[in-house]
Structure formats: structure tokens, C-alpha cells
Amino acid sequence: MPSTKSETVRPPAVAGRFYPADPGLLRRDVQRLIDAAGPVSEPLAAAYIVPHAGYRYSGHVAAQVYARLAAHRGRVKRVVLVGPSHHYPLRGTAAAPYTAWQTPLGEVRAAATNAVGSSRLPHEAEHSLEVQLPFLQVALGDDIEVTPVACGMSQTPDTARIIAALLEEAGEDAVLICSTDLSHYHDLATAQRIDAATAEAIKSLRPREIAPQHACGVFALRGTLAWADATGRRPRQLALATSADAAGSPDRVVGYPAFAIERPGL
């Protein structure tokens, strides 16, 4: 029997919590964040690292990436999204078996993949990839497709090979988005020290130095860095902040990164 719409379209799981559920308010908030970060005129990078907390906390950091993508609206047709599985214990990687993802701004088409198997379970309640979608809709418009992939416990070379396969399958007009936050729930000074060391490991392409407790998307992040190293690309830091820089207490903060991964000299 054919699937029903409810089975093939993934509904929002965190609208009204991580970002506004009202379409008008959501579009205004995202556009405001992108406008505050841009305009930015620079070559399109092959990949970016972005955070995935509630917009009030990490939206200004994520906007550093999406302001750069907005400058290439019409060029980017496919976005490969990789990030953690917070709620489901996952080994290896799992694509999402949906034809579209619903947000308050409408549906985002999902492109099927033959590079990795799919499972609904890691994606049903997951926010790390969902929160990227309204940013993508505002920055790039409605004419995009996404391939969301959850990355659980895995060996870095295996994840890097899967990322390479996903990007080859997606074609020349594709961009990789790696979704991760950094350290969690330290005081501000401790968080800044830990996150600075993680940022150096990212910039120096040293994925083994990033501990699981220092990046909640560590397996996707390590794989992204190994892929970057293998393809001659290097991360450039765009922003590094914590929840205390926005609306949070300095006693228990979460770190947020933004990086562009590009070829040297661009």
C-alpha cells in the first residue's frame, strides 16, 4: 500500500520551543538574524559547521553561516545535513526515510540517498537537523532539497567515507552542513577554555582531539574534519560563542561554533 502523508512527511518536533511556531514571526526572526550577520560576499564553501540550540541562544552564531549561504541563493540546490542523534542510541549513520520535512514555513523536499541506510527512529524527535531547515528556507528559498543523516557512534574514517559518498551523490551544487554544539553546562570560564581548545582542533584538522563530552555532534564533526583533510580543505572560524553571550546564565553554559570549510586561498 502507498504511504500516507503522515508517514512520508516529517512533522516539526521542536517548533514553538527551539524556534517560533508562527510562520510570520519565524521568518522575521530568521531574516533578522541573517541580516545582522550579513551581507557577506565570499566564495561558497563546500561545508559549514553550525550550532543547533534554540534560536535565542545560538541563532546569531548559526546566522554567520546562513548569511554566507544567502549570498549564493539560486546556486545551492542540495544540502547534506549531518548531526547527532540525541534521543535514540544510534550506532553508525542513518538517513531519514521521508519525502519532505515540514516546518512552519512550508515543506522542504528530502532527497533519497543510496549512500547510507535509513531509519525513522533517530529522526522522529531530533532537533539538531530540524532547526537548520527554517534557516535554509529563508537563506536559499524553497527550491532546495535536503538529505538529513544522523551520525551515531562510529569510526571517523567510516563517517568521512559516508560524507564523501553523500556529497558525490548530491552533485556539484551541494553543500554539507555539520550540526554540533560544543561543551555543555560548565561555568563560562571553563567553557571558553574547553571550546577554544576544540576550535583549535577543528582548525588544525585534528578530530581525534575532540572528546565526545566537548561536542554533542562529535561523530559527525570528526567525520567532517576527516573528509575535509582528505579533500584538501581547511576550516575557517566564523564565530565562537556561548549561551551566556545571548540570554543564558554564565554559571551553566553551552558552546556554539560556526566554521566554513574551504580550500586554502579562497
Rank of each mutant, 00 (worst) to 15 (best):
Asp22Gln: 13
Ala21Ile: 07
Tyr55Lys: 02
Thr8Gly: 00
Glu107Asp: 15
Ala115Phe: 05
His87Asp: 11
Gly54Lys: 05
Gly171Phe: 13
Tyr57Asn: 09
His72Lys: 02
Ala13Ser: 15
Ile210His: 11
Gln137Lys: 10
Pro207Leu: 08
Phe135Ala: 00
Ala241His: 13
Leu133Pro: 08
Gly217Asp: 07
Asp29Val: 14
Met1Asn: 09
Asp29Phe: 12
Val80Gln: 00
Arg28Pro: 07
Ala260Trp: 06
Ala191Gln: 01
Pro2Glu: 09
Gly217Lys: 03
Arg73Trp: 12
Leu238Ala: 10
Ala112His: 11
Ala211Val: 13
Ala230Leu: 03
Ile49Gln: 02
Glu107Trp: 13
His52Cys: 07
His60Trp: 09
Ala95His: 06
Ile163Gly: 04
Ala215Met: 12
Val146Trp: 02
Trp227Ala: 05
Arg208Cys: 08
Ala228Ile: 04
His86Lys: 06
Gly141Ser: 11
Thr4Ala: 14
Glu168Ala: 15
Ala111Val: 03
Ala258Gln: 02
Leu166Glu: 00
Ile34Asn: 01
Arg109Glu: 15
Arg161Gly: 09
Asp142Phe: 11
Thr156Glu: 13
Pro23Arg: 09
Ala96Gly: 13
Pro134Asn: 06
Tyr185Glu: 03
Ala45Val: 07
Ala191Lys: 00
Tyr98Arg: 00
Leu69Tyr: 05
Gly265Met: 08
Gly16Met: 09
Gly152Ala: 11
Asp142Cys: 06
Gly152Lys: 02
Pro257Asn: 05
Ala63Ser: 12
Gly24Ser: 15
Thr198Asn: 14
Thr224Phe: 12
Phe135Pro: 01
Leu182Gln: 08
Thr156Asn: 06
Arg27Leu: 14
Leu140Asn: 05
Ala53Lys: 02
Gln213Asn: 15
Gly117Arg: 10
Ala15Glu: 06
Val138Ala: 10
Asp143Cys: 04
Ala170Glu: 01
Pro235Trp: 10
Ala211Asn: 14
Pro134Val: 03
Arg17Thr: 14
Val131Ile: 14
Ala241Trp: 05
Gly59Phe: 07
Arg10His: 09
Glu172Lys: 13
Ala96Glu: 06
Leu266Met: 14
Glu200Ile: 10
Ala13Asn: 05
Arg233Ile: 02
Val131Ala: 04
Leu26Gln: 04
His60Ser: 15
Ser183His: 11
Pro11Leu: 04
Ala239Leu: 06
Val50Ile: 11
Leu182Tyr: 12
Ala13Met: 05
Val14Ala: 01
Thr103Ala: 12
Ala111His: 04
Ala100Asn: 07
Glu172Met: 02
Ala36Tyr: 07
Arg263Cys: 09
Arg68Phe: 10
Leu182Ile: 13
Ala47Ser: 08
Ile194Asn: 06
Pro257Ser: 08
Gly106Phe: 13
